[in-house]
Design a protein around this nucleic acid. Structure first.
Lengths: 372, 372
DNA sequence: GTGAAAGCGCTAACAT
DNA sequence: ATGTTAGCGCTTTCAC
């Protein structure tokens, strides 16, 4: 005796529909697939549709896939992307695009363990995904596992030299230029420091690409205006790193910085703290600009002006490309624009040369006033 | 290593393996499935394994699924879960558990549009997922779509009255008690305010469950110590809401608050700002405690003491339950502990009666407090 | 011990 | 204009 719950649901199949409509499975298949390349009488079509609706028919995607070799499914394999605060956005962008194209998305993550990768990719391939998106948390070069060769793959937020697949990455160089322009427009021409981003100054594949390209864009644009970076303070990516780096920057001798270009919003957060500790105001004494646009950027006072890494657009673009791109895919790199979110942290440089805030209630600071 | 060369031509199938091993597909199937309930000679077993390895054989999961009706796949359907900063953690927890059990995870999201839900669920069901996890961004009551009835479902971070499925939610009431205890242990007995969380005081299903249960735990535990909440300041969930609510709280007459229990880290962030604006120090003048444990909680100065909503554990538990739980699943609610992350924002109450500090000159504000 | 044969539910040549 | 037949790659009786 079955339980009182839902009826013992034998799934309704296409031949159930065909039988009820009084046609063959073939005919049913054609009308249900909405195909027109075979002539079906209007009457038959009606009966099939009607039967399908009456029976609550839903095609079995598994059976269909076995036959067609297409699962309408795509796999996302990432290092530790779900860990990062912006990951949600790339996943959401990918999800939206996948939904528009009636595909479902498998998400996997190696958790940073490269040894886990082959197993995950095999699991995806075993399930016959139509395509895979290989994603990295930070823009960098990667080496996708060999099983992926010859498959339909797009690289998200990474570049894979020697692996024939397109990449979708933020336009870091453009972002750097935009950053420079924002500063230039506010009147900054000197005392501009780059802070944060280990490997900021290295070139790929040793450092992160993001840092290298950004810095290039930044310096290029500055140079075009006859200006230059006053210096670079390398440090980690976190708030604490930024705070320490900026504290040291302020403590060292020399002309005071007028603008800080931080590698991440997190380092900018730390920069705000260090600046406040020194009694310096943003943007009155020092302008701050960064990259990411995490949500807290708008909560800070003043709001943090930052270049919004286009996570959502990246996710969307990757899926659109992998599903809708040419066959085979061309191994180009697609650079997605990085818009500026202008908030209050960039302003005109302090009038009268950079000086370190004079001693106040906060405590004695050495008079280190200098003109540049 | 088998395939080092060009892309796989025709996929190698089980009968390829069988042929090479000189056995039937049946035999190959048994040894490859590792089954022992049929006697296979050791020699045959060896040959099959060897052939499979040599050919780089991988079973076709689609074909297998069609036969076995099990896809080793699970679907996650959520409202806008990927949008929230903690979503990454629940996904990661779910991913880990799924991987341990050799399942793959489909992620879908309605984007808050309830009209999108049936389509998404159908897409999942069409692909024959073994189970689905129905998740909500904030703990609340939900009404899963009818197609899900009778399926193997677990509710993640939500409760569905009238829908027979287990739920996995944070132990909000316990969290409230823990919060109270932390305050009590620091010596707080009066001037404790609850701030933030629209619907904090409402009972389900009108308000968010989280708020109701938390508040209950908080008041219960306070009551057990003979203390009570000084009041509740309802407001939204964001930093700005918290800032305004606390500013008003401070501006109104009456005894000054000694401790603030904020609904989210974001409101606590705003509370820090309002407190700093009023020249009040944390925790010297006012203790602050909140819920979430977002990453910035540790960057604030002082570090924010908060109850860490167990997102990762929630994701794991949901998958473990849906895959490993009894058949059928019992509609119980599983409450996951919410650990306290003690940082610096809770301290002993200010000595002497609380008076609202009158804001002095701008220079009187401590730089460090202005940061937030 | 092992293999032949029958499907799982669907699509696509090839008939009529 | 519609039906027949043959698989897709695998599992699983059941017979030898």
């Amino acid at each position: 005796m079955p339980t009182a719950g839902p009826p013992p649901r034998r799934r309704v199949t296409m031949s159930d529909v065909a039988r009820r409509a009084g046609v063959s499975a073939t005919t049913a298949s054609f009308v249900l697939a909405g195909r027109t390349d075979m002539r079906i009488s209007e009457a038959a079509r009606q009966r099939v549709q009607e039967a399908a609706r009456a029976l609550g028919y839903r095609p079995n995607a598994i059976a269909r896939s076995l036959r067609t070799r297409s699962t309408r499914t795509i796999g996302l394999v990432s290092d530790t992307i779900t860990t990062t605060p912006y990951a949600g956005e790339v996943i959401r962008g990918a999800l939206e695009a996948a939904r528009d194209r009636e595909h479902l998305l498998f998400i996997t993550e190696t958790g940073g363990d490269p040894g886990a990768e082959p197993g995950l990719v095999d699991a995806l391939l075993d399930r016959d995904v139509d395509a895979v998106i290989y994603a990295a948390m930070y823009t960098r070069t990667v080496a996708p596992p060999p099983q992926l060769r010859g498959r339909r793959v797009v690289l998200l937020n990474c570049l894979a030299p020697g692996f024939c697949a397109p990449s979708v990455v933020p336009d870091e160089r453009g972002a750097g230029r935009t950053a420079a322009r924002a500063l230039l427009e506010a009147g900054h021409r000197e005392g501009v420091w780059a802070v944060g981003g280990r490997g900021l100054a290295h070139r790929p594949p040793d450092g992160l690409l993001a840092g290298h390209d950004r810095l290039r864009g930044l310096t290029e644009e500055l140079a075009a205006a006859g200006a230059a970076l006053a210096g670079t303070s390398e440090c980690g990516w976190e708030a604490d790193d930024g705070r320490r780096a900026v504290a040291e920057l302020l403590a060292r001798g020399g002309p005071a910085p007028r603008a800080l270009v931080c590698a991440t919003d997190r380092t900018a957060f730390g920069a705000y703290q260090a600046l406040a500790d020194a009694g310096l105001r943003v943007p009155g004494d020092v302008s701050v600009l960064s990259f990411d646009d995490q949500d807290f950027a708008s909560w800070l006072r003043p709001g943090l002006t930052t270049l919004a890494l286009p996570h959502h657009a990246l996710g969307r673009a990757a899926v659109d490309l992998v599903l809708g791109g040419p066959r085979p895919l061309a191994p180009e790199v697609h650079r997605v624009p990085v818009p500026l979110r202008a908030r209050g942290s960039v302003g005109p440089p302090a009038a009268g040369g950079g000086r370190v805030h004079s001693p106040g209630a906060d405590g004695e600071r050495q008079g280190r006033e200098r003109t540049t």
